[in-house]
């Protein structure tokens, strides 16, 4: 598998989701594999594709805080994207196999990068999910680790979600540098339990930058895939510009 690394900065939530969707479309259409690292500018709340957002979150509270908001094409729960490195992997399904295998394979690479930075990153064990009642105590993505997710000191440091379209998959997620997910609780209609997230700054006891993490991932991605190479310099992503209309449309953002 030959990977193409895409570098992008300065994109909004809708632009980032549109670009990730475009990478997924490209992976499905061409069989190519992509990964990219990015951040949300401005900071943004993202809902999971099927989250009942109208029931869970207060649009007025979001407006009062002046937060950007978007609904992802992937599953999972709400995330506050502020101090983080966001990653996206779009690839043919055959590159990673089953859902469980793909979570684990991608997270192993990311955990290796965090280990290189000095964090004691481990994958959460596969285990039966907690009872439904417990799962719904918090709507935040970082509240509960699923099997194969990356933990530091037993708490989730990377929150990921995936969508499979035809023969391709998109997995993207947030690697927390600092801050908290308190914004999700602040805009929730019902009080929810504290999120159990961990940040790299807290884990390492020092301020850690986007660039440090990005470099560690780039180095580790190469190391763990010795038979592949990144294209440098990077060619244009695609002839077709990403369409952001879907992700700026309130009918999509607040569809449930």
């Amino acid at each position: 598998m030959r990977w193409r690394q895409i570098e992008t900065t300065g994109l909004s939530g809708a632009e980032n989701m549109a670009l990730d969707q475009t990478l997924l479309d490209e992976a499905e259409r061409t069989g190519q594999a992509f990964w990219r690292l990015y951040r949300f500018e401005p900071s943004c709340i993202s809902f999971g594709r099927n989250e009942p957002a109208r029931e869970r979150y207060d649009p007025d509270a979001i407006a009062q805080l002046g937060c950007d908001v978007v609904r992802r094409p992937t599953g999972g729960r709400a995330v506050w994207h502020e101090h983080e490195v966001t990653y996206a992997v779009a690839a043919p399904v055959q590159a990673f196999g089953s859902l469980r295998d793909s979570y684990r394979a991608i997270h192993e690479r990311l955990a290796a990068a965090l280990q290189a930075l000095g964090a004691d990153a481990k994958l959460a064990p596969d285990r039966p999910p907690p009872p439904a009642a417990a799962r719904h105590q918090s709507h935040a993505c970082f509240a509960a680790p699923a099997g194969g997710e990356v933990l530091v000191q037993g708490r989730k440091v990377i929150g990921s979600a995936q969508v499979r379209q035809g023969k391709a998959l998109l997995q993207h997620g947030s690697i927390l540098l600092a801050g908290s997910q308190d914004v999700i609780r602040a805009v929730s209609r019902q009080p929810s339990a504290a999120s159990g997230e961990m940040t790299l700054t807290a884990a390492l006891g020092r301020r850690i930058t986007f660039e440090e993490v990005a470099e560690a991932i780039a180095a580790t991605w190469d190391d763990t895939l010795p038979s592949t190479a990144l294209d440098r310099p990077r060619p244009p992503l695609t002839d077709r510009p990403p369409s952001i209309a879907r992700f700026t449309d309130p009918a999509w953002t607040w569809r449930r």
């Binding site: 999971g48 594709r49 099927n50 094409p73 992937t74 599953g75 999972g76 729960r77 859902l99 979570y103 999910p129 993505c141 699923a146 099997g147 990921s160 979600a161 995936q162 969508v163 499979r164 379209q165 035809g166």
Partner: peptide, 11 residues
């Protein structure tokens, strides 16, 4: 249609 499980959406 689509189905969501463990934060993954599949067709």
């Amino acid at each position: 249609g689509t189905i969501e499980a463990v934060k993954a959406v599949s067709e």
